[in-house]
Amino acid sequence: MTIDSHQHFWKYNPEKHTWIDDTMASIRRDFLPSDLKIVYSGNEIDGCVAVQADQTLKETDFLLDLARNTDFIKGVVGWADLRAENVEETLGKYASNEKLKGWRHIVQGEADPNFLLRPEFMRGISYLEKYGYTYDILVFPHQLGSVLEFVKHFPNQKFVIDHIAKPYIKNGFYEGWALLMEAIAQHENVYCKVSGMITEADYNSWTPEQIHPYLHHVLEVFGSERLMFGSDWPVCLVAGNYGQVKAVVTDFISALGENDQNNIMGQNALAFYRL
Rank of each mutant, 00 (worst) to 15 (best):
R68P: 00
S195A: 14
D4C: 09
E44Q: 13
V235R: 07
F115V: 08
Q210K: 13
T199E: 13
L219W: 02
I27D: 02
P208W: 04
K246V: 04
V76M: 10
Q52H: 06
E85P: 01
Q7S: 02
V51M: 06
P234V: 03
W233K: 04
K193S: 05
I164H: 01
N189M: 05
V238M: 12
H6A: 05
N262Y: 00
M122C: 14
T207S: 15
G257E: 12
A183W: 00
F173K: 15
L82P: 02
Q143K: 14
S224G: 05
A80V: 15
K93C: 06
V218K: 07
W206I: 06
A239L: 10
I3S: 03
H163M: 11
A271Y: 02
L100M: 15
A183Y: 00
D54S: 10
M228I: 07
K130E: 12
P208L: 06
A53S: 15
V249D: 09
M181N: 08
I198W: 04
T199A: 05
W233Q: 04
D260I: 03
E85G: 01
L215H: 11
V249A: 10
Q244K: 12
E209V: 08
N259L: 10
G172R: 12
E88D: 13
T60N: 07
S41V: 00
L32T: 11
P167E: 11
E110H: 12
A269F: 03
G47W: 06
N114M: 09
V151W: 05
I169Y: 07
A80E: 05
I27S: 05
D202Q: 04
Y168W: 13
A271G: 00
G176S: 13
N259C: 00
A247C: 00
E182L: 01
L138C: 15
L100Q: 11
N97F: 07
E209H: 08
F140C: 01
E182C: 02
F121D: 08
D71E: 14
L275W: 08
D232Y: 07
K101N: 03
L64H: 08
T56Y: 10
G47V: 07
P208F: 03
L237Y: 04
A53D: 00
R123Q: 12
V139P: 02
P208I: 05
M1T: 12
I161M: 08
G75A: 15
R274K: 15
L82T: 02
A80F: 00
F229E: 09
C48M: 12
Q52I: 02
S146R: 03
K246H: 04
Y191G: 02
Y12A: 10
K99R: 14
G124K: 07
A50V: 13
G78R: 08
F150V: 03
R83M: 11
T18N: 10
V107S: 13
V190Q: 03
S34Y: 08
P141F: 10
V218F: 11
P167F: 07
D71T: 08
S146P: 02
I137P: 08
G196A: 11
L215M: 15
Y133W: 05
R29E: 03
K130G: 04
V245G: 01
Q261H: 01
T90K: 14
Q186D: 11
G223M: 08
R29L: 01
F115Q: 05
